[in-house]
């Protein structure tokens, strides 16, 4: 048994002269919900396309339950169910016909299983309608049903909340948490909006310009609400700021980012006094220190900003 559900080993993708993914390395743990966040054009879809073998990996490797997607494609892909970009299905077939089409492509999927996944995403009523008449939310759910068909141990969803209204997003969120628990799968879920998915994730990886910026835990075993309260997004105006950033990294293993004169980082509430103490002891001047409204807010996003690939 492999230690991780998925492992990216210095994965790079070059198209033409442009390096789109610049050496990603991270692991997805078994049974966790992993949020893959980054602004549009950061390289989320490209990474996911490499994970499922749609795109060749320029260098490095991706292991799925220990099997390389490059050299052991069938063994690796057997473990995966995915939606890549939009949940596209055959519009001239019904939801049921679409699912049966994919069911026939795996050896172990019975009709009962198809009924089961339809029920799991709550599409019983519309399943005999043509997909061409589905709303985006319904297609998103059908996409998830399709991805779950062959009992995957890893579910990959690329921007499943994209284009949905708040109610639709809430629904998807509920499905995903429920599926993660009921089906015992690891879920990789990408989004360009942190706020839309952070609530359902155990950990979040942030990618920008094809590079991994940071990985954060957002949700420990104790329980969602409790944990969320403890995790703070700190904003500190300090000088000299570069020294402060280095100190945080060295003494507290915190990756802080600079936003104009402000130092921005995320930490648990109980760590705040000792962090301040470290800064003060090292002769860093602190002009103000505050907490952003919520833990990993959109704010964090502003700071990461848009992509600068050109």
């Amino acid at each position: 048994m492999a230690e991780f559900a998925m492992e990216l080993i210095h994965t790079k993708k070059r198209i033409g002269q442009k390096e789109i993914i610049k050496g990603l390395s991270f692991q997805i743990k078994k049974g966790e919900v992993f949020g893959f966040i980054g602004p549009n054009g950061a390289g989320k879809t490209t990474t996911i396309r490499m994970m499922v073998g749609l795109m060749n990996i320029t260098s490095g490797d991706i292991l799925i339950q220990g099997n390389s997607i490059k050299t052991k494609f069938k063994e690796a892909i057997k473990e995966v169910g995915a939606i890549v970009e939009n949940p596209e299905m055959y519009p001239f077939m019904t939801g049921w016909q679409n699912l049966m089409h994919y069911a026939r492509m795996s050896s172990d999927v019975t009709k009962e299983r198809v009924h089961e996944v339809v029920a799991l995403v709550g599409l019983e009523k519309a399943i005999n309608q043509k997909v061409g008449r589905y709303s985006l939310g319904m297609r998103q759910r059908l996409g998830i049903a399709q991805a779950l068909l062959s009992y995957p141990s890893i579910l990959i969803l690329d921007e499943p909340t994209n284009g949905l209204d708040p109610a639709g997003i809430r629904e998807i969120r509920q499905y995903i948490r429920r599926i993660a628990e009921e089906e015992q799968v690891s879920v990789i879920i990408s989004s360009h909006l942190l706020s839309e998915i952070e609530m359902m994730c155990d950990r979040i990886g942030i990618i920008k310009n094809g590079e991994l910026i940071t990985i954060e835990s957002v949700r420990a075993a104790v329980g969602e609400s409790e944990k969320e309260k403890e995790l703070l997004m700190m904003q500190v105006e300090a000088a000299p700021i570069d020294k402060a950033i280095n100190l945080l990294q060295a003494k507290h293993s915190i990756k802080a980012v600079r936003e104009e004169k402000m130092l921005v980082f995320q930490t648990e509430k109980e760590n705040v006094p000792s962090i301040i103490k470290t800064l003060v002891e090292q002769d860093i001047a602190i002009y103000q220190a505050g907490v952003a409204k919520k833990s990993l807010e959109d704010k964090f996003f502003d700071l990461i900003g848009e992509n600068t690939i050109g």
């Binding site: 494609f73 596209e88 519009p91 050896s107 399709q146």
Partner: peptide, 14 residues
């Protein structure tokens, strides 16, 4: 054109 190629090629079939 339909985008379904992505779902077709991520099955355990070469």
């Amino acid at each position: 054109r339909w985008g379904t190629i992505k779902l077709l090629l991520i099955r355990p079939i070469s």
